[in-house]
């Protein structure tokens, strides 16, 4: 186990290194770093001084080492637009994104599980067919367009929900959260539902497939033969067993949800890190782009690592595979 862990950690470190190199090359070699890092208003002398100060006259590999060293200390540059450290800027927006992603995950489970359960228990009823057809639509519909339509119907036409923004927030432990106020919840409803759209379809399909498979198992037949009520069989014997794979997949999808919140946040003007990165790209605020990229890379590598470790704990074959 320790060997496996060490090897995976080493691999993860390698990937971070490779990605940082890619990011570095992407930002510093494709564009002209002088133009990127120094304000265009600077005159010739200021410019030269800045080039010296930033170490842009050094060979590229030395520059990379400097970048790496600073990155390790948590210094990823300052935003041109906000004139704040880029890392701090992103971390400030992170709670909003996490809140949205968690809300979406919750919504996907609350909506998807019952629908999938129903479709799995009565696979041939017209309602189930309707549920399945809708879930195909959930995979096909472009998320951003659905978001626009939600705004059109619920904010513009009906006026039930606010169209954009985060609403009233409450401060807990130094960060602001929307989900504790009525106004905040109203603002969160549409973006969370929008972000959940794809996951709802996913949960419906997984649950349905799981139910149909589990219903044929011997232990379910046995529970029925024992004379247990259908609802007990469904909710205790079947439901518990399908919950494991569903929760695993939804957990795995969490990284994807954070990534995809870029789109939802832009549609609903939700002030999270996804909106920040789109705005930064549009004004070419490169330090923020670099910082965001590095954070996302770290996030994904951590998620993948956790998944691998969980799997290796659950299934020893994964651990042993590398040895042979």
């Amino acid at each position: 186990m320790t060997v496996f862990l060490l090897r995976r950690l080493l691999q993860a470190g390698g990937v971070v290194l490779v990605m940082s190199l890619l990011v570095f090359v992407g930002v510093f070699a494709i564009g002209d770093p002088v133009e990127i890092l120094i304000s265009p208003e600077a005159d010739q002398i200021e410019r030269e001084r800045a080039v010296k100060a930033l170490g842009l006259d050094l060979p590229l590999w030395q520059q990379y080492l400097v970048f790496l060293g600073k990155a390790l200390q948590g210094d990823l540059g300052r935003s041109f637009v906000f004139n704040e450290p880029a890392l701090q800027l992103i971390l400030q927006r992170m709670p909003a994104t996490l809140e949205l992603a968690l809300g979406a995950t919750l919504a996907a489970l609350v909506i998807g599980l019952p629908l999938g359960l129903y479709a799995g228990l009565r696979p041939h009823s017209p309602v189930s067919r309707g549920i399945m057809a809708t879930s195909i639509l959930g995979f096909s519909l472009p998320t951003f367009w659905v978001g626009l339509m939600l705004i059109m119907v619920f904010a513009v036409q009906l006026g039930w929900l606010p169209s954009t923004g985060r609403g009233e927030t409450v401060e807990i432990l130094g960060t602001r959260w929307s989900f504790l106020t009525r106004d905040g919840l109203a603002h969160m409803a549409m973006p969370a539902l929008n972000l959940a759209l794809f996951k709802i379809s996913l949960v419906i399909r997984l649950t349905r497939a799981g139910v149909r498979e589990t219903m044929l198992m011997d232990y379910v037949k046995f529970a029925r033969a024992k004379g247990l009520s259908p609802s007990r069989v469904t909710f205790v014997h079947v439901f518990k067993n399908i919950l494991i794979p569903v929760v695993t997949v939804v957990g795995l999808e969490f990284g994807g949800t954070i990534a995809f919140s870029v789109v939802t946040e832009s549609v609903f003007a939700w002030p999270g890190m996804g909106k920040l990165i789109i705005d930064s790209i549009n004004v070419l605020d490169r330090p923020v782009m670099v910082a965001y990229l590095m954070i996302i890379v770290l996030l994904f590598i951590t998620i993948n690592l956790l998944v691998d470790i969980t799997y290796s704990v659950l299934d020893p074959r994964v651990r042993l595979e590398g040895k042979s």
Binding site: V262, L293, I296, N304
Partner: peptide
């Protein structure tokens, strides 16, 4: 392992 939307965005 990296979401398509983010990779394309970058």
């Amino acid at each position: 392992s990296f979401p398509a939307i983010l990779a394309a965005l970058m």
